[in-house]
Amino acid sequence: MLYSIIPPEVVLRPADGPAAVLWEEVEASGARRLILRRDADGRVVIERIISTEPRDYLDPALQPGQPYHPGRRE
C-alpha cells in the first residue's frame, strides 16, 4: 500500500517509451551492489553504486561511467 505525497496514478504510470539502456545489478563484496549498463561503445560500465560505505563514492574505479572489471574483487 502506497503512502506517499505522489499520487498513485503518477507513481504507477508506465514509463514513456522504451529506455535506451540495459541494466544489470551485480553483487560486489559485502552489502555493496553495482548497477551496470552498456555504454554506446558496447562497454559494460558502472552506472551507480549502492553502498553505505562513504569511501566507495570517492573511489575513482567505482565512479559512474568507469568500466566494470568482472574479475576484480571490489
Binding site: P18, A20, R38, D41, R43, V44, D59
Partner: peptide, 24 residues
C-alpha cells in the same frame, strides 16, 4: 536483472579491461 527495454538488439562484445586486483 533489470531491463530498460532494449530488447534483443545485438549488443557488441564488451571490451573489458583485464582484471586489476591491485588498483584499489
Amino acid at each position: 536483472r533489470h531491463e530498460g527495454g532494449e530488447g534483443d538488439a545485438a549488443a557488441p562484445e564488451a571490451e573489458l579491461t583485464p582484471p586489476s586486483a591491485g588498483d584499489r
